Simulated scan of single mutants.
Amino acid sequence: MSGALDAVLARKSLSRVTDAAPNHAELASFVSAAGTVADHSALRPWRLIELRGTDRERLGRAFAKAEGEKHPSTKPMRAPLLIAVVVSYSKSEKVPRWEQEATASGVAHMLSLLLDEAGWGVFWRTGSATRSKAVAKAHGLGKNEALLGWLYVGGKPPRTRTGRRKSIDGDRFLARMPRKKKSDASN
């Protein structure tokens, strides 16, 4: 198998990570590589926000505000590094909004694969807070932007299982275009 195929098959989401995290320079190199994802018209309709230290506490307060809670959420403290994935919509005749979201999602997924391959634990979290005003304000989102979630990144715990992910049967999800029916041939 190829290196990329092996890496994809070996990837596991890790909801529990250690306090270690890639530094900014290392993260920037992964972002540079992830940015090569398919991008119709090269719009680059995405950006990432690096949250470390007290940024995570601010996010916990924004979660609490969004959810009507009195105490800050501890969810953002579950990893030393959170990477907010933002879609930045561009007006385009050629590229609809859904395709711009797909590009931003592709960057996030590619980044998670690169981080995992480099030995970091990664988990993509979403939820209702991604669309809340309080959380958008905390991230400084513009009117043309939406939050797609966060990559939680940290060290892989020593007891992490290293076995392969259970693969799916590709034939179950792969089909050919239906053949023309005789009634269609007359059209």
Rank of each mutant, 00 (worst) to 15 (best):
A175Y: 05
V17E: 07
A42D: 15
Q100H: 06
K137G: 12
S2N: 15
D19E: 09
L27G: 06
P22S: 06
L14H: 11
S90N: 07
T103Y: 03
A108I: 00
R56Q: 06
H24S: 13
A84V: 00
W120Y: 13
R159M: 03
S13F: 01
L148S: 14
R176A: 14
W98I: 08
L174E: 10
A7V: 00
R56H: 04
P72E: 09
E67T: 02
V87S: 15
R176T: 14
K181P: 05
A64D: 12
G35R: 03
G60E: 07
L43A: 10
V153N: 14
W46I: 02
A138K: 06
V17A: 01
V153D: 13
A102S: 09
S15Y: 02
M1V: 03
V122P: 14
R61Q: 15
H139R: 01
S2C: 08
K180I: 08
G140H: 07
K65D: 15
A84W: 04
D171N: 02
A21T: 11
H24Q: 14
A66R: 05
T160Y: 04
H40Y: 01
I168W: 06
A42R: 15
L114D: 14
H139C: 11
D184G: 12
A136Q: 14
L147M: 09
T103D: 02
V86D: 07
A104H: 13
F63G: 03
V153P: 12
T160I: 04
S2H: 13
A7L: 00
T103F: 01
Q100N: 10
T18S: 15
S29E: 15
R164T: 00
V17G: 04
P80Q: 03
S88W: 01
M1F: 05
G142R: 06
S186I: 07
H40Q: 11
V17L: 10
